[in-house]
């Protein structure tokens, strides 16, 4: 229990600051991401609370994996904030993929506000046993 008391600070959402102009008035946030590696693939888990499956886009263009999660703003329009620890906004993040990833086989799924991406490694990168003649 002592460990819990030690750090009760809320981890801030990371807001993205870019020089580009955007056409949406909402703030943009960097989704917190875990990357896990297995022998066959890399797994990405991205936290996007409040984002519906329908409002997520994952694009791959010129080796850049672009992930966007759009938030539904309508439920918030009538509310008057009293105390806030987070703001709402869209999530966006980009990853540059190397040629070690088999880009044709990337899979994505969304559950409980977490986007899971499976990036399979190319066959040459996967461990294999070599036959002894």
């Amino acid at each position: 229990m002592a460990e819990e008391k030690k750090d009760l600070a809320v981890n801030e959402k990371k807001e993205i600051e870019t020089k580009k102009e955007h056409t949406t008035p909402l703030k943009r946030y960097l989704p917190a991401t875990d990357i896990v590696e297995t022998e066959q693939e890399l797994l990405l888990y991205m936290d996007m609370p409040g984002v519906d499956k329908e409002n997520v886009t994952v694009k791959l263009e010129k080796n850049v994996l672009q992930v966007d999660g759009m938030i539904e703003t309508k439920p918030y329009s009538e509310l008057k904030p009293l105390y806030t620890e987070y703001n709402i906004g869209n999530y966006t993040r980009q990853f540059e993929l190397s040629n070690k990833i088999d880009q044709s086989k990337i899979e994505a799924s969304m559950k409980d506000g977490v986007l899971s991406l499976v990036l399979p490694k190319v066959a040459e990168m996967q461990p294999r046993s070599i036959q002894i003649n």
């Binding site: 809320v10 981890n11 959402k13 509310l79 008057k80 904030p81 009293l82 987070y86």
Partner: peptide
């Protein structure tokens, strides 16, 4: 520690 918002209508 999850982030919390409190609002009113």
């Amino acid at each position: 520690s999850p982030r919390i918002d409190v609002s009113e209508d």
